[in-house]
Amino acid sequence: MKFIGTVQAAVTKAGYDGGPTAAELDAIAAEMPVITAEVELLDVQIALLDRELYPIDAKRLRRAERRLMDARAKLANRTTEQDAEVSA
């Protein structure tokens, strides 16, 4: 029986350290407000799964949704502004 093993050099390019590049880290940092807002919204939704929706809970849910929409809008506007600068 032959031994079949992977050849690491053939699978990955040389010099790959396994970490994100500077550009990838910048993209993650730019999206962090959206990620944080999504987590906060998810926390509110989980908290409301097994109980009745009271007015204060509805307000908390709307506030979390509004924060997420604001963060997404800011990210989209930032991306649009960067695209306009590049094409100009």
Results as ranks from 00 to 15, higher is better:
Arg51Cys: 08
Thr36Val: 12
Ile35Asn: 13
Ala22Asn: 10
Glu38Phe: 04
Gln45Trp: 01
Val39Gly: 11
Asp43Pro: 03
Asp26Val: 08
Arg51His: 13
Ala23Ser: 14
Asp26Gln: 15
Gly18Phe: 02
Leu25Lys: 15
Gln45Asn: 06
Met32His: 10
Met32Gly: 06
Ala22Pro: 07
Ala27Thr: 11
Thr21Tyr: 07
Thr36Gln: 15
Ala27Ile: 12
Leu42Cys: 03
Ala22Tyr: 12
Pro20Gly: 04
Asp43Gln: 12
Met32Phe: 07
Ile46Tyr: 03
Glu31Asn: 14
Ala27Val: 04
Gly19Leu: 08
Thr21Asp: 03
Glu38Ala: 05
Leu41Asp: 00
Ile28Asn: 06
Thr21Ile: 09
Ala29Ser: 09
Leu42Phe: 11
Ile35Leu: 14
Glu31His: 07
Gly18Gln: 04
Ala37Pro: 00
Met32Lys: 14
Ala30Asp: 07
Val39Thr: 09
Glu24Asp: 08
Ala22Glu: 13
Ala47Leu: 03
Leu42Ser: 14
Val44Tyr: 01
Asp50Leu: 11
Glu38Leu: 06
Thr21Asn: 08
Leu49Phe: 08
Asp43Trp: 07
Glu40Met: 06
Arg51Phe: 04
Val39His: 06
Leu41Thr: 02
Gly19His: 13
Gly18Trp: 02
Ala22Lys: 12
Gln45Phe: 03
Val39Glu: 06
Leu42Ala: 10
Asp26His: 04
Ala37Cys: 02
Glu40His: 13
Thr36Arg: 12
Glu40Tyr: 05
Leu48Thr: 09
Leu42Arg: 15
Ala30Gln: 09
Ile46Leu: 09
Leu49Val: 07
Val44Thr: 10
Leu49Thr: 12
Val34Gly: 01
Ala27Phe: 11
Ala47Pro: 03
Asp26Tyr: 06
Leu48Asp: 05
Glu31Met: 07
Ala37Met: 02
Ile28Val: 11
Ala27Glu: 15
Met32Ala: 14
Glu40Thr: 11
Ala37Tyr: 01
